[in-house]
Write a protein that binds this DNA or RNA. Structure first.
Lengths: 341, 341
DNA sequence: TTGAAAGCGCTAACAC
DNA sequence: GTGTTAGCGCTTTCAA
């Protein structure tokens, strides 16, 4: 059996409560006793039992991280590693640990969240996605459990939830405007899963830009795919089979763009000469495509960092008011766009 | 305050222990009482407190996942997401949760591991890397704490630790043999961080293949870089500045290969016409490079899955004997290799 | 400034 | 089959 607070107390000739106070560095303990107790802890190799502490405390110092259903797909995309990197950094600084969701389906995940909340496993929850008809958020809201959303609440009053997001609408609009400015009129859109709010926002931005430019919206220029890998490739096939092919593409995600470029290459459609492309995220390898891709940097790392920051604030002060943080984005011009002749 | 086991007991007119037994579905409870108790749980909306359970139980049903120091670098590489995907799958099946390390330096991580172990936060630990002078493994070994290593123990008796690995030596040898068979004699090697055992193994395989082929080893053909992104590019510069440039490259990692191809392209060295390349891992995007890369599939997902499987076995039966699992690899031929004229 | 003791919610040994 | 009860190791009143 491991050494407990009682052992330390005995050794230092004090009461267990005193040891506890020393651990939390209470100001009402004399320096002398503190020293003596610390000594004893060292000698015995004492380490607190975190479960016992959590039980007495009702605080776990851990954050639950909920990934979209099926990490299967999620983790394919460097977005998640990168956002977790941001989360990790802040969490470590503040002495929090991370507890990861493992469920694959929406229902499994909801079950897990319930366990985390009811079971007292975590002090707060980070939602790494915003889905259109999500059940997790309503649950959390209903129970007044601290959480922060990365993304944007949908069908839920924004003032009721703290979230960290990009202005994806604007980003998509800017990017489309940019292609229009380069002289493109036939601009296709390859979007992600329509269940995700980010996809909805992207599409609206794209549509608005075209409308502003008096370019007619063509249904057949818009393709959606859930899978980042095959998705990009399938989408290309669809778009290239159209009579009047697009000359430029707005692509939901950099990884998709890899697939898109690859596929176009196979069809001898050259980027950027025959096709311009802009996409989103600017993950690490985005600059390593051939040609290097023009993309919107959404500062994924910051999304994670800020969200964690907000969450910890909320945990520390449950009555803090809800907050909306927009992380700025930035168009990174590389070599997948070209002016129309 | 949440509803506890006592509330349920009162409601169902039984003792708390009975409720506990119903929860664990003990066979010594009559179906009738079980029903009654379950009814009460439903009515009251009971959910067990996991901290209390862990405290009484000395079991947390969670696995600690330790990433190499600085997830900063680690997560850049799709290897980790993919291995976690494997872990996640098995863990979920078996009802285990995942607790992630967040430390950046080796010391921080060792501290975290100690916390996990002493603090009773996890039942077992998964080590996602094998470093040459690692302190975590000795610690775990010394404390007889259940853990499984993904990779290979170094400077530690293999029979003392359960590990899941590829035969990286052989993979590197095969790959180099392959290039030799294609007629290459000037074969460069771009390796990862030499602190990692996998890098050591790769290099040995490479050297052995050259030796077997009676090709002299050239120091200047061997370059190591820790960072996957810049690494590949820097390495190319070094290798291309040599008088007698290599005609083929063995690259430690697919992501590096993206950088390598990119850089070669900039120098108008075309792959595979002017340079053949083979690398390792076969992550999702590996087939999306231009040209698609020839690489060794190491079945990352299986590494994670098997390791988790072994760990859970060890947790359930601490006296089970240590085991060594080698996940097979497979050369995936795509388009970055060409026969020398 | 310190100690005694109650309790956090659950499990498991022991009794019946 | 079911109940009683003593912990698990810590925190936190309340007293002194």
């Amino acid at each position: 059996m491991a050494v407990t607070i009682k052992d330390v107390a005995r050794r230092a000739n004090v009461a267990p409560s005193t040891v506890s106070r020393v651990i939390s560095n209470s100001s009402r303990i004399s320096e002398k006793t503190k020293e003596r107790v610390r000594e004893a802890m060292k000698e015995l190799g004492y380490h607190p039992n975190l479960n016992a502490r959590s039980l007495a405390n009702k605080s776990t110092k851990t954050i639950g991280v909920i990934m979209p259903n099926s990490a299967k797909v999620a983790f394919q995309n460097p977005f998640f590693p990168e956002v977790i990197r941001g989360i990790t950094t802040k969490a470590y600084q503040e002495g929090y640990g991370l507890y990861l969701s493992t469920g694959q389906t929406e229902d499994e995940i909801l079950e897990e969240v319930k366990q985390m909340v009811y079971g007292g496993r975590v002090d707060g929850i980070l939602l790494l996605y915003s889905r259109v008809n999500d059940k997790v958020m309503p649950f959390l809201l209903e129970h007044g459990f601290p959480f922060v959303l990365i993304g944007r609440p949908y069908n839920i009053d924004e003032s009721k939830v703290t979230f960290v997001n990009n202005d994806n609408y604007k980003a998509a609009k800017t990017v489309t405007d940019y292609l229009v400015l380069l002289g493109h009129k036939r601009i296709g859109f390859i979007g992600g899963n329509l269940d995700y709010v980010v996809t909805v926002d992207h599409m609206k931005g794209y549509e608005q830009a075209l409308q502003n430019a008096n370019i007619e919206l063509r249904e057949d220029y818009i393709v959606h795919h859930a899978e980042v890998k095959e998705g990009g490739q399938d989408a290309v096939i669809e778009l290239m089979s159209i009579d009047q092919r697009p000359t430029a593409l707005v692509v939901a995600d950099d990884i998709m763009t890899f697939g898109v470029i690859r596929m176009l290459e196979d069809m001898e459609v050259h980027v950027p000469d025959d096709m311009s492309i802009v996409s989103f995220n600017n993950v690490m390898i985005s600059e390593l495509s051939s040609p290097p891709m023009t993309t919107v940097d959404i500062h994924i790392y910051d999304l994670g960092l800020q969200a964690t920051h907000c969450l910890i604030n909320k945990i520390n002060d449950p009555d803090i008011e809800e907050k909306k943080v927009i992380i700025p984005h930035r168009l990174i011009k590389r070599q997948t766009c070209k002016k129309m002749e």
